[in-house]
């Protein structure tokens, strides 16, 4: 009975680890995309910097160029903010991957404990199985709960 519980928990933990690993990959893909967008912004900022209407000279032209310089500076800051977003996405990916690795490690540990429990007598076996269940439940909590919760990964 106790061994069946461990088996059920392992059945839930393996797809959870796979989902976390897939999420990390998706986050890294998004980070790369954001970095490309930052490069687009930088190129556009360089182009906009040239929009200084060189044939226009007046006090109003000076005011315009001051405004243009502000817009260009904003654009440069935007590119920096996108870099920051990409970094956040990569950090998020690393976080998800760390959780996935923790689940995989927990499954391995729990499986080893279950194997040992099968070889021990009635006194030690149930204790080892309870220990294995604890390891798995803790790992699953770390990735958001039991299998039912993981299936609802679309929640933000």
């Amino acid at each position: 009975m106790v061994a069946a519980g461990v088996e059920a928990l392992v059945g839930a933990a393996v797809p959870a680890a796979a989902a976390a690993s897939g999420a990390a990959a998706a986050l890294r893909l998004a980070a790369a995309g954001v970095e490309r967008e930052a490069a687009v912004v930088r190129a556009e900022v360089a182009r906009a910097r040239g929009a200084d209407a060189p044939g226009w000279r007046s006090r109003a032209a000076e005011a315009y160029r001051a405004r243009l310089a502000e817009v260009v500076a904003r654009g440069a800051r935007d590119a920096g903010a996108l870099d920051e977003l990409a970094r956040a996405l990569r950090a998020h990916a690393a976080g998800a991957e760390a959780r996935a690795e923790a689940v995989v490690a927990a499954v391995a540990t729990a499986s080893a404990l279950a194997d040992r429990a099968a070889q021990e007598g009635e006194e030690l076996g149930p204790r080892l199985l309870r220990r294995a269940e604890g390891v798995l439940e803790e790992a699953l909590r770390a990735v958001g709960g039991r299998a039912a919760a993981l299936a609802d990964g679309a929640r933000w």
Binding site: G22, A26, R87
Partner: peptide, 24 residues
Amino acid sequence: LVARAALTAAPVVDPAGAGAVAQA
């Protein structure tokens, strides 16, 4: 791009990271 990544399990498995992404 970010929305597509958010449709995965990422926010569930790393809510703190997801918060940082949302802020950025």
